[in-house]
């Protein structure tokens, strides 16, 4: 089975720690996914207006690239890219009229009918590697770490692209496979405010406070996620909330793949503590993980 990988813009810069840790982990697990030789920004959000087809062209072009590579699957790590690509894919598969218009418009590309499967790395790990297999390859079990998995919106809404019907199972299974203790919390799918950080930063701070408090109350030591925008909002707004004493303590935040790389026994050049914030790095130190990564280039 041929699998293509779509990184998206943010993974090449601000979220390099998401990409590096995931790719190094996959290599350690013996799975090959190949980055699309050519790709463009997916547009980050799905167009919600019935007459707005032009914004579907970008994600569809990426899907066509995967198909042209002969891939059956296109794997993504960023939740927003996953959502945008998966929804564009369903549109091309299910809406005959819009499919024709988009295909006719993209005359320079091959026709596309939704042949490729878009998959996020977490279900990919379960389906292709399997939790038992993963468990067998863990070298440094994350024993004693209480990890809350934050899904946010784009992994679970709308339902037709949700990585599971009711959030809370798959990421907990992932956490368990790493040897850590999964922590359920009620705000696991509460939106972090997303792009409203541009227009309504205070509303974003308000929801971030609710997410962090919910995870704290449930007893989490740290939170994992897979969206660079969630990561940004959760880290940035925690600074403000702490200053205003609206949260009790700072919650470390990691990409799920950083914990995966750590548990697989890979070095800091893979899990990239140099890209994490100070509180998260402190947490790693307290758990005896190396945070020295002078050799790593940004």
């Amino acid at each position: 089975m041929k699998v293509s990988y779509y990184p998206g813009c943010t993974l090449k810069t601000k979220a390099k720690h998401l990409e590096d840790s995931a790719l190094a982990s996959l290599a350690a697990l013996g799975v090959e996914i190949r980055e699309l030789p050519r790709w463009n920004c997916c547009g980050a959000v799905h167009s919600l207006a019935d007459d707005d087809l032009i914004h579907h062209v970008a994600p569809v072009r990426d899907l066509i690239r995967a198909k042209d590579e002969g891939s059956e699957r296109l794997v993504t790590l960023c939740s927003m890219c996953y959502n945008t690509l998966a929804r564009a894919n369903l549109l091309m598969r299910n809406d005959e009229v819009k499919r024709k218009t988009i295909n006719d418009f993209m005359t320079e590309e091959s026709d596309y009918q939704g042949e490729v499967e878009v998959e996020h790395l977490i279900p990919f790990l379960r389906d292709v590697i399997g939790w038992d297999n993963l468990r067998a390859k863990i070298k440094v079990p994350l024993t004693g770490m209480k990890i809350a998995s934050y899904y946010g919106c784009t992994l679970v809404r709308p339902q037709n692209v949700a990585i599971e019907p009711v959030a809370g199972k798959i990421m907990n299974e992932f956490v368990e496979a790493l040897g850590a203790e999964p922590i359920d919390f009620s705000a696991n799918t509460l939106c972090c405010g997303s792009y409203q950080v541009l227009a309504h930063p205070d509303s974003v701070a308000d929801v971030v406070g609710r997410i962090i408090e919910s995870a704290s109350r449930a007893g989490a030591d740290a939170l994992i996620l897979s969206c660079p925008l969630c990561e940004y909002n959760l880290l940035k707004k925690q600074e403000e909330l702490l200053e205003k004493q609206k949260i009790g303590r700072r919650m470390p935040v990691f990409y799920f793949s950083q914990l995966l790389a750590m548990a697989l026994g890979l070095g800091p050049e893979s899990y990239r503590p140099d890209m994490s914030d100070a509180a998260s790095v402190e947490f790693l130190k307290s758990k005896n993980f190396s945070v020295e990564s002078a050799a790593v280039q940004a």
Partner: peptide, 10 residues
């Protein structure tokens, strides 16, 4: 400072 997806989505 913002991740690209914040700007593009916004």
């Amino acid at each position: 400072e913002l991740p690209q997806i914040a700007l593009v989505a916004g």
